[in-house]
Simulated assay, not measured.
Amino acid sequence: MSVLDEWAGQRAPVGADPDGRVPHAVSDAVHRAVSDARDVDDFDMRHLRYFLTVVRSGTVSAAAQQLRISQPSLSQQIRRLEKRVGAALFIRSSRGVELTAGGRAFLREIQGIPGQLRSAIAAAAPAPQVWSVGVCGGVPADVLIEVQNGLPGGGPDSGRDPGVRLRMRSVGAADQDDLLRRGELAFGIVRMPILSPHLVGAVVWDEPLGVVMAQQHALAERAEPTWSDLARQRLLWYDEGCAPGFADTIPAHLARLGWNSVLHPVDQDQHALFLHALQTTSDLVALRPRRAVEKEPHLVWRPLPTSRPPRERLAVTAAGDSHEARVLQRVAGERGWGFFAE
């Protein structure tokens, strides 16, 4: 009796015959997989990681630094991979490397393999020791607590996923898509809209934006600044790397309302820089939900002069078709988070 037959006798999969036999479609798929695996027995997953890192970095030297190996060693491993594939994958020049047509085809077919393998491991043993959660800049503590209490391994109900532990760490929104798909992050917390078609998510925070300024700002005494008041102010804003999508859509929304703001970009992953800029620049204001800054003694919050202000929506995300995506969908249903799949 084969392992496939034993598995069929122990557990009938969806679509199995009443007597527990594996459907022909499943059996055929396993046999095809056995044949495919035989063809790539000598393929090293390490080479896949090296290839993907060179693609992301753009140069072999930068990739070698990230991988913590020497540049000659990495070059040698890439050449071995090209020999195994039977085609050149990169065009090398003084400026770095570019993918060949074969390299682009190879990337298209293999970039999902690490995530699929990680999902397979998680499905077989769905209790990894640590799930990393990437957190973009400026996320309120209330959001972190809600996510911590909702996801497995964080809150009081984590006993349903024994052995799971969450670890939150600062990761820029622009980097999270790649890290989620490669399995280096289990979940991410980012501002909407999400531009990647490869992610699913659940909205955990949806609040109207208002004007934030230092206590000593000239507009701090106004109960509600006008568009004319705001036209003379610069807007302390995210650079595109901090909040892709959000960084473009909100200023466009403000322009439609009548405020063509002059943007003053700053790295808002660091709250201290955000506070310092507002307190030391007289014509500078920011946008935040009231709940995000109401406990900050050095800042004043005022509503925008509109009945339909732009909103800040924060979402927990996961790589589509992954074990974590299924966990997120389950948690979203339990906690009333608005789940979506792009």
Rank of each mutant, 00 (worst) to 15 (best):
1 M>R: 08
6 E>W: 13
7 W>D: 01
14 V>Y: 04
16 A>L: 11
18 P>D: 07
23 P>F: 08
27 S>K: 13
28 D>L: 10
30 V>W: 12
33 A>M: 08
34 V>E: 12
34 V>F: 12
35 S>V: 11
35 S>W: 06
35 S>Q: 15
37 A>L: 15
41 D>Q: 12
41 D>L: 11
45 M>N: 05
46 R>D: 10
48 L>G: 11
48 L>T: 04
49 R>H: 10
53 T>G: 07
54 V>Y: 01
62 A>H: 02
64 A>T: 01
64 A>D: 02
65 Q>K: 14
65 Q>N: 09
66 Q>M: 05
67 L>K: 05
68 R>K: 14
72 P>Q: 01
76 Q>R: 13
78 I>E: 03
82 E>Q: 14
82 E>S: 13
82 E>I: 09
83 K>V: 12
84 R>F: 08
85 V>N: 05
85 V>I: 15
86 G>N: 00
86 G>I: 09
92 R>A: 00
96 G>A: 04
98 E>L: 13
100 T>F: 06
102 G>T: 06
105 A>N: 12
107 L>N: 08
110 I>W: 04
110 I>G: 01
117 L>Y: 00
118 R>P: 07
130 V>Q: 00
130 V>H: 04
138 G>I: 05
144 L>Q: 10
145 I>V: 15
147 V>I: 14
152 P>A: 11
154 G>R: 01
156 P>A: 13
159 G>Y: 12
165 R>T: 07
167 R>F: 05
168 M>N: 01
169 R>Q: 13
170 S>M: 13
170 S>R: 14
174 A>P: 06
176 Q>D: 07
177 D>R: 10
178 D>C: 06
179 L>W: 02
183 G>C: 00
193 P>A: 08
194 I>D: 07
195 L>K: 14
199 L>F: 00
203 V>K: 01
206 D>L: 04
210 G>C: 05
215 Q>N: 14
217 H>P: 02
221 E>N: 11
221 E>L: 13
222 R>C: 04
222 R>P: 04
222 R>H: 10
226 T>N: 00
229 D>Y: 08
236 L>V: 10
242 C>W: 09
247 A>L: 06
250 I>S: 07
252 A>W: 09
252 A>H: 08
253 H>Y: 07
254 L>I: 11
256 R>H: 09
258 G>C: 11
266 V>F: 06
267 D>C: 07
267 D>A: 13
267 D>S: 10
272 A>S: 15
273 L>A: 15
277 A>K: 08
280 T>W: 12
280 T>E: 03
280 T>K: 12
280 T>Y: 11
283 D>Q: 10
285 V>L: 01
287 L>S: 00
290 R>H: 13
292 A>Q: 10
297 P>R: 14
299 L>C: 08
303 P>G: 05
308 R>Q: 15
314 L>G: 00
315 A>N: 03
317 T>M: 13
318 A>E: 03
319 A>N: 01
320 G>D: 12
321 D>R: 14
322 S>L: 04
325 A>Y: 03
325 A>S: 13
329 Q>N: 12
335 R>C: 09
336 G>S: 06
338 G>C: 11
340 F>E: 05
340 F>D: 10
340 F>C: 04
341 A>E: 15
